[in-house]
Design a protein around this nucleic acid. Structure first.
Length: 416
RNA sequence: GUGGCUAUAGCUCAGCAGGCAGAGCACCAGAUUGUGGAUCUGGGUGUCGCGGGUUCAAAUCCCGCUAGCCACCCCA
């Protein structure tokens, strides 16, 4: 009699139920279609990685510093559930020898990521990303290519109304000098910044630019802009990317405050937001160039560019008409009486031509018919003990109500 | 990590100047002497999220915890 508390889902994770799956599959299929159309190949990498791989490439980000799922396995290895895909894809690129094939390697991945943050709308501890990476090429055309791919995906799922924000954050050659300039600008204002920004000033000054705390806002306007201080190479890359995007008729807004907090990010950074929204916490996709990432992982220096799209967020915004209807059940077999063996055999016969389920429940015929109706079955096959003995059944067309008696062996041809 | 709101039947929720636990939907059955969709009738024991406290008495008031939603931080 004493009952225990039912065990519920882990905090911040959720089930994708059958009713939600069509829109989910539509988003994934669009990703695969678009990826394929752009010449990208699918890759699957493990959800588990060495914690060190993740930590080495993301030490200063919230995703790694505060939100990493980390644990020791039974062999004492320090592992992590990936909070993003790029680190693992770059690792696989080298370990799998893709660096020895034609370059760049064009890859995409769809799968779950994990972050231990506080759950909220459009934000889960296990969430799904569509990841696209072009590794082994430094050409600006690849930057615009992945941006165009992201745009094509979002367009494919019916989210044509978008805002694309763009910036360049330079590279190891020009960024240090810019950061000194930025620090020099902010130092006299330090006392007026909020606590975390005061720390950022020396540790990670770029992040001062995307701070959203009201008291820090007034100073941004006159802060030096990195795009004014790019080295010749970065500058050429930047103008080239913009020209390519113009040629692709992709509209964008330059956002000098769009940054990435990590050293291995270089040059182009971008984010896609839904068109109508004004909020900052609803990015649908974001990415950029990461020419320093491979080296940070201990591999030979190799350029790369890519983006991550949020499948959870996209499915929540997808318009209803881009979601295919769920495939209906074709046939429900309804035994009337203790006829499990016979009903299963009839179902087996019918499965040659369609989707068939059997209602084995010990309830009234009326109730079973009601189930058939709710399941959307096109046909019902009714079976009484007498009919089963004669190996015949009643085939009922659920839309017209017409019903005929047939031999079991005739069913497939009548259903086809 | 911070804040606000919430937690009662399978689901959505009402009940909260403390006094016997309710409705709709869903589900099951019947009206229809074994055939779906419409209608009507009947069918409710549920640790009132968990733990503690106040009280003669707690779903109701207080504290803690857990979870959900929303926002902040940050990101997908």
């Amino acid at each position: 009699m004493p009952r225990s508390e039912p065990i519920k889902a882990v905090r911040g994770v959720r089930d994708i139920l059958p009713a939600d799956l069509p829109r989910w599959r539509a988003a994934e299929q669009a990703a695969r279609d678009v990826g394929h159309r752009f010449g990208y190949e699918e890759i699957v990498t493990p959800v588990l990685e060495h914690a060190e791989l993740i930590e080495r490439v993301g030490e200063d980000t919230d995703a790694v510093a505060k939100e990493l799922y980390r644990f020791d396995d039974r062999g004492g290895r320090n592992l992590a559930l990936r909070p993003e895909a790029t680190a693992g894809v770059v690792r696989a690129y080298f370990e799998g020898g893709l660096n020895q094939g034609p370059q760049p390697s064009r890859l995409y991945l769809i799968g779950p990521m994990f972050r231990y943050d506080r759950p909220q709308k459009g934000r889960y501890r296990q969430f799904y990303q569509f990841n696209v990476e072009a590794i082994g090429g430094a050409e600006p055309a690849l930057d615009s290519e992945v941006i165009e791919l992201a745009d094509a995906w979002l367009d494919e799922v019916g989210l044509g109304d978008l805002r694309l924000e763009l910036n360049s954050i330079g590279d190891a050659k020009c960024r240090p000098a810019y950061l000194e300039r930025l620090k020099a600008y902010y130092r006299p204002l330090k006392d007026q910044l909020h606590g975390e920004c005061q720390l950022r000033l020396e540790r990670n000054p770029l992040r001062l630019l995307d701070c959203k705390v009201p008291q820090c806002q007034p100073f941004k306007k006159d802060a030096p802009r990195i795009t004014d201080f790019l080295c010749d190479e970065c500058s050429a890359h930047w103008t080239s990317v913009l020209r390519l995007l113009d040629a692709a008729s992709l509209e964008y807004v330059l956002n000098p405050y769009l940054v990435r907090g990590l050293d291995y990010y270089t040059r182009t950074v971008f984010e896609f937001y839904p068109g109508g929204a004004s909020g900052q916490q609803d990015a649908l996709a974001s990415g950029g160039r990461y020419d320093g990432l491979a080296e940070a992982e201990g591999w030979p220096a190799t350029p790369g560019v890519g983006f991550a799209g949020g499948v959870d967020r996209v499915t929540e915004l997808m318009p209803i008409d881009s979601i295919p209807a769920k495939p209906p059940l074709d046939v429900l077999v309804i035994p009337d009486g203790d006829l499990a063996i016979e009903a299963a055999e009839v179902a087996r016969i019918c499965r040659a031509v369609g989707a068939v389920a059997v209602d084995y429940a010990p309830k009234s015929l009326k109730a079973k018919m009601r189930s058939a109706n709710k399941l959307g079955a096109r046909w019902v096959v009714l079976l009484t003990p007498d009919e089963a003995k004669r190996r015949v059944a009643q085939l009922r067309d659920m839309s017209s109500g017409d019903q005929v008696e047939l031999d079991w062996v005739e069913l497939p041809t009548r259903l086809a």
